[in-house]
């Protein structure tokens, strides 16, 4: 039985432009999460994350955003439809947008998907971790 809520932190911890998700993961790993919430390191996986979406009620993805999308240190929230609208055709680089586009087509029931992101900035991982925790607490 999988936890109904998954908090999946994505990114490349070897690349400072893309390591925000892994840094949020490291912070949350040291904290008590609400019952029914599973924390996962999504790393560079895109479509392969579908495996971890199966059977969930809510999936919160955490990822770094490009500067122009993430604003100045703020947190940006995308719902599943907004994320899916950014998807291009499948390719080796198919990422979270393609995942969000395909999830409602291949999973029954499909989870609600949210993406929390921020541009890399000092302290951004703490802001993002707080936002992620609030979201999973709210359920």
């Amino acid at each position: 039985m999988v936890a109904p809520v998954a908090l999946i932190c994505c990114g490349n911890r070897l690349d400072p432009r893309d390591d925000l998700g892994p840094r949020v993961y490291d912070l949350l790993l040291r904290q008590a999460l609400p019952a029914g919430v599973e924390l996962l390191d999504g790393a560079l996986a895109g479509l392969d994350l579908m495996y971890w979406l199966e059977g969930r009620r809510l999936v919160v993805l955490v990822d770094a955003l490009a500067d122009e999308a993430g604003g100045a240190g703020g947190v940006r929230l995308y719902d599943g439809a907004e994320l899916a609208a950014m998807a291009g055709n499948y390719g080796h680089g198919a990422g979270l947008a393609y995942l969000a586009a395909m999830a409602p087509r291949v999973l029954d029931p499909a989870p609600t998907i949210r993406l929390l992101g921020a541009a890399p900035a000092p302290g951004a991982e703490r802001t993002l971790a707080r936002a992620a925790l609030e979201m999973v607490h709210a359920g």
């Binding site: 479509l47 579908m50 495996y51 998807a87 055709n89 586009a101 395909m102 087509r105 291949v106």
Partner: peptide, 17 residues
Amino acid sequence: APFRGARVIDVVQQTKR
């Protein structure tokens, strides 16, 4: 067809296993 072709959906569904 991307996203909606029957085989596309089936392959995404099955290969995750």
